[in-house]
Design a protein around this nucleic acid. Structure first.
Lengths: 223, 223
DNA sequence: GCCCTAAATGACACCGGGTGCCATGTTCGC
DNA sequence: GCGAACATGGCACCCGGTGTCATTTAGGGC
C-alpha cells in the first residue's frame, strides 16, 4: 500500500529539473533498491547502515546525506501521501457526506504502479514494516501527521462550533484511517485474490458518521 | 490519561510479595519520579540516561536493569492497560452493542488516581509524549498492541464469518481508539474544566457501528 | 577545452541509547 | 557465619546519527 516511487519528474514549473537533483534521485532509488534486497534477505534490524552504504558503494556518512535516517529509507515514501490526500479531499464535492469523501480519498492509494513486480516488492516491504515494531511505530506516527492535514478540512465541512475543542473531526478522520489500516492488515494477510478496495469497503461500511449537519447532506436537503 | 502507577501490591496468590521485588518497584518509582522532574525541566530528548541514572544515584548500566529503554520509563505504564481493558470488555453484557461496550471499557481510564497532584504530573507527562515524535510513535505502537487484545473479542461478539479475513473487528476497535485519542487530544489542549468523559462521549457519538448482527442487538430482537 | 566554484564525498571523532561480560559487593536463607 | 543468589558498577563494544574538515568531483561560464 502507499507505493508510488513515482517521483514525478515533470514538475509543474518550467524548470527542466537540475541535473544534480536528478542524479540525487537516482542515488536514492539505487540505495532503496539495494537496501530492500538486504532487508528481505537478512531482515531490517539485522542489516546495518554500513552494510547498505557499502553495498551501494558509498560511505555511511554519505548515506545519511540521502536519507535522514535508516527508517526513512523504508517509510519516507509515505510523506508524499499527506499532500495528495489533502488535495484529493479538496477535490471532492463539498456536499458529499464526509465518510464517503474519505473513502474516495483512499482510492488514490489504489491506482498506483500496476507493474506486478514493483507491487510485490512493495507488499514485501509493507510486511516488513508490519513485522518490525520500530518501523510500525514510525509508520503510525507518520500516518498521524497525514491525518492532521485532513482534520482541519473535515472540521470545515462539519462547520464545527468551536473547532479546537471539538474532538469529532479528529475522531472521524482517525476512524477512517483505522478502517484503512484494518483493511490493509486483512488484505496483506490474505491471498490477495480479492482487490484491496473490497476490504476497504467492508471495513468502512461497518461504521457510519452520525453528525447533525451530516444527515442533512446525506438526505440532500436541509437549511 | 492512563495513569495508575497503582502497581497492585496485593496480588491474587498468597505470596506476600518478595522483599526484593518490592525494593525493585521502589527503585522504579524513584527513577520515574527523578526522570520526570528532569524531563519537565530540560525536555525529554535533552535529558540523557546517564543524567537520570546519576540523579537517582546509580549507573547507566543499572538503569537499564530497571527499564528496557529510556522510552519505557515514560510509556511503560500503558502496558498494564491492555489486560485491564480486555477484562473490562469481558465484563460487559454479551448482548450490549459493541460500540457501547467499548465506550464503557474506556471508563477504566477515568477512575484512576484522584490525587490532583499526581494527576497534574500525569497530564504533564502526556503532553510530553504528545510533543515528542519518538514517544508518540512508541505510544501509538503500544496502543496498537492493546487494540490487538480486543479485536478477537469483538470478532467473537459479531460472530464474524471468516474471522481472519474480516477487517471489521479491527476497524471497529481502531475507530474506538481513534475516538479516544481525539478526545484525549482535545481535552489535553483544553482548560480541563469539562470532564474527559464528555469529550469521549462527543467523539464516540460522532460515529455509529453498522453491522447486521449489531442492529438486532440494539433493537433487542432478532433470530 | 580551461578554470573557478560549488557541491559531493570520505574519513574521523564524537554523542547517546543499548548490551554482553565480568568482577565486586550485598543480602537472603540456613 | 557461610554459601548462593542477586544487585551493582565498570568496561568495552555495537549501532544509529551528527559535526567538521580536507579532498575530490563535476558543472557552468568563458
Amino acid at each position: 500500500m502507499f507505493a508510488s516511487w513515482a517521483y514525478a519528474d515533470g514538475m509543474s514549473d518550467g524548470s527542466p529539473t537540475p541535473i544534480r537533483e536528478r542524479t540525487r534521485r537516482l542515488a536514492q532509488i539505487e540505495l532503496t533498491t539495494v537496501a530492500q534486497d538486504l532487508f528481505l534477505e537478512h531482515g531490517y534490524e539485522e542489516t546495518t547502515v554500513d552494510q547498505i552504504a557499502a553495498a551501494a558503494g558509498m560511505s555511511k556518512r554519505t548515506f545519511f546525506r540521502y536519507f535522514p535516517s535508516k527508517d526513512d529509507l523504508v517509510i519516507g515514501k509515505y510523506d508524499l501521501f499527506g499532500d495528495r490526500m489533502a488535495d484529493a479531499l479538496d477535490a471532492r464535492p463539498a456536499d458529499e457526506p464526509v465518510w464517503e469523501s474519505l473513502r474516495r480519498v483512499f482510492d488514490i492509494t489504489l491506482d498506483y504502479v500496476q507493474d506486478s513486480q514493483a507491487r510485490a516488492r512493495n507488499d514485501a516491504m509493507d510486511r516488513i514494516v508490519q513485522s518490525t515494531p520500530q518501523l510500525t511505530a514510525r509508520y503510525l506516527e507518520k500516518l498521524q501527521r497525514v491525518q492532521a492535514l485532513l482534520i482541519g478540512r473535515v472540521a470545515a465541512r462539519l462547520g464545527s462550533s468551536a473547532s479546537a475543542s471539538d474532538p469529532r473531526p479528529a475522531a472521524i478522520v482517525g476512524a477512517a484511517f483505522a478502517c484503512m489500516q484494518a483493511a490493509r492488515a486483512s488484505w496483506l494477510s490474505s491471498d490477495q485474490s480479492e482487490p484491496f478496495g473490497e476490504y476497504l469497503d467492508r471495513a468502512m461500511g461497518a461504521l457510519d458518521v452520525d453528525v447533525d449537519s451530516e444527515r442533512r447532506d446525506a438526505l440532500g436537503g436541509g437549511q
